[in-house]
């Protein structure tokens, strides 16, 4: 296998006047996970569509699993799995039939495809639902089936386009657990997401895109350092004591505090993580200030974008990702 199973140089894609990708370079080393992080319309899906041979770039080139996506699309397709943004399982087919069909289209024999489908249903906790039509599945089950479908032919490279968008927190956690096992398996993965938390949890490398451009790149820690790390937020029970609480917070973190009387809260950046949170809790307790909520939170994608680009995410029309279909 090539050292970098996903390698892209200068990808440009235009839809009429709109530039969906404005020259993107990507390089994902074998056996690692790269997350492409960005808001709707940033060009994430366009990039995935090009790398999975669904769409041709206007400029630039890319190789996946060692083959050129434009010159050898079939060779690429034989080696990849794609979980598209909307789970593309066939709603009229049962879970089992879906997997068998995908297996057969990956050129397994019918018998091999059936065995493989059974294994995957088991592995993705869908064995009981395998005989029912997938149109009746919950969102989380449909995603799991979709993910199982991408693994039918043991792909070298996996593309997951917003694998957890639209899932409730429980289903998201379940899916993350499934993805963890994939990562252990050593598959090379490119995933897109709108959630910094998800990128942080799953990826070795994070590429932040906005308006078709890469605006930052690195591991989660270096990105967070760029945007100022975590925040500690305090919400007091009595708004009169907010000023006092802010002073305590500022003294412990040693950073600038932002007060918001309308929500009775104060926020300050910290680099001390959970231990900083404990210090703040203790100090507030000693001062006898009633606390309704105290939390440590990562910067949101919005805050990352605000810091990196100076403009909030989603500042434009909330289009369905580049209207690519």
């Amino acid at each position: 296998m090539a050292a970098c199973p996903i390698e892209a140089t200068g990808l440009v894609k235009r839809y009429g006047e709109k530039v969906a990708l404005g020259g993107i370079d990507l390089s994902v080393p074998a056996g690692t996970v790269t997350a492409v992080l960005g808001p709707n319309g940033a060009g994430k899906t366009t990039a995935v569509r090009i790398l999975t041979t669904l769409s041709e770039p206007d400029e630039g080139s890319a190789t996946v699993a060692g083959f050129d996506v434009m010159k050898d699309p079939t060779e690429v397709r034989r080696r990849i799995g794609l979980a598209a943004q909307d789970a593309t399982v066939d709603p009229l087919l049962t879970g089992f039939e879906n997997l068998v069909m995908i297996g057969e289209l990956h050129q397994l024999s019918r018998k091999e495809a059936k065995v493989r489908a059974g294994e995957l249903l088991e592995e993705f906790s869908l064995a009981d639902a395998g005989g029912r039509v997938s149109g009746g599945y919950s969102g989380g089950m449909r995603r799991r089936l979709d993910l199982a479908a991408t693994l039918v032919a043991n792909p070298e490279v996996l593309f997951l386009d917003e694998p957890t968008t639209g899932l409730d927190p429980r289903a998201r956690n379940e899916l993350w657990a499934v993805l963890d096992t994939l990562l252990d398996h050593g598959t090379t993965i490119l995933l897109t997401t709108q959630y910094l938390e998800e990128a942080d949890r799953l990826a070795n490398d994070i590429v932040v895109v906005d308006h078709g451009q890469i605006i930052a790149q690195g591991d989660a820690r270096s990105l967070k350092r760029q945007v100022g790390g975590d925040n500690i937020g305090v919400t007091v029970t009595q708004v009169e004591r907010l000023g006092e609480a802010a002073q305590v917070l500022g003294r412990v973190t040693g950073t600038a505090v932002v007060e918001d009387p309308s929500t009775r809260s104060a926020v300050a950046p910290t680099e001390a993580g959970v231990s900083g949170l404990a210090d703040v809790a203790r100090a507030l307790g000693e001062a006898g200030i009633g606390v309704e909520d105290l939390s440590l939170r990562q910067p949101t994608l919005d805050e990352v974008f605000l810091t990196l680009t100076g403009s909030p995410a989603n500042d434009e029309t909330p289009t369905d990702e580049d209207g690519a279909r």
């Binding site: 079939t74 397709r77 990849i80 598209a84 909307d86 995908i102 289209l105 279909r325």
Partner: peptide, 12 residues
């Protein structure tokens, strides 16, 4: 149902 994309990403 995006089945079109699914098929197009397969080696058929």
């Amino acid at each position: 149902n995006s089945a079109v994309d699914r098929f197009r990403s397969l080696p058929i």
